[in-house]
């Protein structure tokens, strides 16, 4: 599978961040869909079939931790890699959100994020 076909779903309630990530990942060759609302993520995944979900944690209505555990409990989606991209800083909160493959903290350079995404996708492929 070439990277061109790799599909990333971004979920972040901050649109200024979500849009920047979408553009940045597209510039790096990914196919990207962005959602600012965390409530319909399962439905979006079933339709979009992302290779990886990039998930904010601190979101109103439904937080990223809950979304990730929903993905993990879904027959068709449980193997989809999840990267948490969060502004959470303390250990306590990191321990609460272990259902993702990795936890990255904002702000992170987009270039670095791209490297992490490639590493996670590569590991899954192997």
């Amino acid at each position: 599978m070439t990277e061109r076909n790799m599909k990333i779903l971004i979920v972040d309630d901050e649109e200024t961040i979500g849009r920047a990530l979408k553009t940045g990942l597209e510039m790096n060759g990914f196919t990207v869909r962005y959602e600012s609302c965390s409530t319909g993520v399962i439905a979006v995944c079933l339709e979009f079939h992302p290779d990886l979900v990039l998930l904010d944690i601190g979101m109103p209505v439904k937080d990223g931790g809950l979304v990730a555990s929903e993905l993990r409990n879904h027959q068709a989606l449980r193997n989809t890699p999840v990267i948490f991209l969060s502004s959470l800083v303390n250990k306590e909160e990191a321990q609460q959100n272990t259902s993702g493959d990795i936890l990255l903290s904002k702000p992170i350079p987009i270039a670095e994020l791209v490297l992490k995404i490639r590493a996670v996708l590569h590991n899954k492929a192997v």
Binding site: E14, T16, I17, T23, L88, V89, K106, P107, I110, A111
Partner: peptide, 25 residues
């Protein structure tokens, strides 16, 4: 202080991320 710093990381990402796009372009 933790909370305030945490809250600031998000808009900081909005600034640095968008500026990085312009640079990458």
């Amino acid at each position: 202080t933790d909370m305030v710093v945490h809250d600031m990381r998000s808009p900081l990402m909005g600034i640095t991320g968008n500026l990085e796009l312009l640079e990458m372009d």
